[in-house]
Amino acid sequence: MRDANSVCMSDDFELTEPELTPEDLLVLEDPRFTEESVALVTGAASGIGQATAVALAANGLTVVGADVDEDGLTETGDLIAEFDLPGPYHPIETDLTSDDDVDAVVEAAAEQGDLRYVANIAGMQHIDPIAEFPMDKYDLLTDIMLRAPFYTAKRAMAHIRETDDGVGAIANMSSVHGHYATQAKPAYITAKHGITGLTRAIAAEGEGSLRGFSVSVGYVLTPLMVNQIRDTAEERGISEQEVVEDVMLGQARTKEMMTPAEVANLFVFGFSSHASHLNGGDLLFDGGYTTTYE
């Protein structure tokens, strides 16, 4: 029997992002999961970022959602209200390629209470081999997925240290592509390998109470993933169904795509006191991609 949250390939092969429900969300007892504690979530307008913002609100945290997509940020707030979740939510339209915008959203988060948690989730994808990769796309992708997490951490660390006990965590969205490389995703792979270094650097400087960790997953059915499936199909000259079944799930032992909620729950656990020894490490939930082979 399959888990209700898992996403499998139907006979008519129709890919749709799963609907988020309150029952999907992990809720933990934690002394710091209160309205006084603030979590900043980037990429909060859709996909994993949206699910993470909702999951943290379900745990009673004050959530500041950052994204360039104002309508998507509103949708996230609508979900939190619809589910009647205890955590307050503050959407802030943010261009992560602008240092001024990052400064503003970090300061806004700190004004809401004790900024303890940062989830750097915002991402993008572009499919091309190295020889043909447009440098403007490389610059944009690495700005959003590597420079922005670095700068957000730089600005947030002082606020976390200023809390009464200096306890908090900065979590970075990584990927199986932070562990290995495949063809035609060189900028994404570069950024995700860089995230590993940033995560370890945060842990090295966090003095134990300010933790850094990353989350690595395989393929998650998000709007970004639907677009990536189409791009990969075009790049390789195969059908979208072949991309999913042979390219994406072919190496995995778990033949199901993850849902955004399942990934969001990893951030909830990683931020909690249950994960106090998760520091500089990576939560690898990939269905066996990186540890098994034919």
Rank of each mutant, 00 (worst) to 15 (best):
L284W: 06
T74A: 07
V68D: 05
E107V: 08
L96T: 03
A131H: 15
V118R: 02
E107M: 12
A204W: 11
K255A: 06
S175V: 00
V64D: 08
A57E: 05
T97I: 11
L198G: 01
H179F: 14
D246W: 08
A44S: 10
M258T: 10
M9N: 04
D78Q: 14
F269C: 10
G237E: 05
S98M: 02
L85M: 01
D30T: 06
R32C: 07
A201V: 10
S272I: 04
S10L: 13
P88A: 09
T290P: 08
D143T: 00
E294Q: 13
V7T: 13
E132K: 10
G178D: 12
D128P: 05
Q228I: 14
G113I: 01
I130N: 04
A204P: 15
A181N: 15
P186S: 04
A171F: 15
K255C: 07
A191K: 02
L56R: 05
N172P: 09
V176H: 11
F271E: 02
N279T: 11
R253K: 12
L61C: 15
A169L: 09
H193K: 09
I130L: 10
R230H: 15
D30L: 07
R211A: 00
G168C: 00
A55K: 11
G212Q: 11
D69T: 01
T62N: 08
G194L: 01
A39P: 03
A81I: 08
Q228G: 14
A45I: 03
P223E: 07
L284P: 03
